[in-house]
Design a protein around this nucleic acid. Sequence first.
DNA 1: CGCAACCTTGATCTTAATCAATCGTAGTGG
DNA 2: CCACTACGATTGATTAAGATCAAGGTTGCG
Lengths: 255, 255
Amino acid sequence: MATAQIDINTRLKNQLTGRVTGLQFSHTDQAKTIFDIADRYAVNHRALKAGTGLFAEGEESDSLYIVLEGWLFLHRILEDGRRQILDFALPGDVIGFCGKEKSPLTFSADAITNAVIAVIPLRHVTELLRNDTASAMMLLRAGQEALLGAFDTLTDIGRRTAREAVAHFLLRIHRRSIESIGPDQDRTISFPLHQEHIGDALGLTAVHVCRTLRKLRNDGLVEISRGHLRLPNPDALAEEAGIYDFEDTDFRLAS
Amino acid sequence: MATAQIDINTRLKNQLTGRVTGLQFSHTDQAKTIFDIADRYAVNHRALKAGTGLFAEGEESDSLYIVLEGWLFLHRILEDGRRQILDFALPGDVIGFCGKEKSPLTFSADAITNAVIAVIPLRHVTELLRNDTASAMMLLRAGQEALLGAFDTLTDIGRRTAREAVAHFLLRIHRRSIESIGPDQDRTISFPLHQEHIGDALGLTAVHVCRTLRKLRNDGLVEISRGHLRLPNPDALAEEAGIYDFEDTDFRLAS
DNA sequence: CGCAACCTTGATCTTAATCAATCGTAGTGG
DNA sequence: CCACTACGATTGATTAAGATCAAGGTTGCG
């Protein structure tokens, strides 16, 4: 069991390391190092079946998690059932670090697909901070990356129309998938999200996401089929999202 | 000039240290250590007039900033002028750390009131990570704290009504102000935000914020006057926000 | 085959946006 | 001291984006 999971880890690292050639810079290095951190500091791996939870709001956890394989989502549920998805987590992403011991988590994490997660207890994080400056910097960056992602979503929900928000969301997920899993084939990525996931991430209903996607599909900007997403014309889609020249610049930029 | 600013810093620390007596635990310690970090690693202080910018989207910055005095807001502006406020920054908050050098910032930070900011260059952050494990942990926590705040706002905008969101927002700001500036007098805090700030933070128009605040005021839940905010009945307001027993639990919890 | 998810589409309703004045108050210059 | 100005808060009338309610329609799987 443990060895099988380490194989998965190693395989992912190789995939990512193999990618360095074609690409320019640091994101790839970062992902590599995140997996190195998982290698060196994880006490065990957790294999989750699709639909099961990694942790839930209210639980106490003194661990940090690194996704090795699969897609998860972080969310919060209100009393009456309204759900807000806060983020998605792909391989190489760090989640669940609340910083303090003994304080309850304020959100839940569930697996969308089958997933493998490296578990790093807080005491190993302390050790990492003491002995491994480069990894500490990686961790800081990962946190900041997550914050910037939340800022993107905030802008999508707060100040973009449904059409703009969905377009922007798909571009971001597409980019993250490529950065995490590796280059896409013909602009196509594996895409396990349901319309309800998209809606709950963007503050929309699944019905409205459906209508919005239909229009984007009719306009030839998006293709979704059996768990795969293709963006035939990312530039045109970026224009819909209210972003221009997104190939050149970091398309997180609003203008 | 430098001495005057250090005096401000010292005074703030004393205020916070003085608070330890009445309260239970780590938040206070954390704030103290954030100011210690500012003391030890800042190369200089910047004094900002109300309404001026600390940095703007698109600029490159290899510094991290710690607010010593005043209120700031972080925001992003879309092409057509729509604005999303991403977060507010109060004394003790850390902002602007993008993690990578030479990459442009993806949001702006402006001062709401006059403000004093400690500037820590990235090379000092590296030094901090290498030599000062406790401070490194503080920095990680501060980042996580910001992420959790963004998650709160995400839930407000995405899944709460205007009334719930405004109630929740005021409770959070009230709490942050107390944690940062010190205990309030008679449930009253200094509150420099305009209705437009609240609207841009919550994805609403200033007009709708006005109407929502009026109703909350008519219900005796909120009092706002000349830059001050009073929450006469936090428990009742928390109920409006869809939170119960918020005195006992971390009211970041949705349920 | 038949059920269970999920997606799709239509009709109607609600929340919040937009448009448009008006009011209050703090500052400014004469 | 007082008109004048500017900016923010307020209120009303109207519109629009997206929610809600209600059927079907697909797809995949035991």
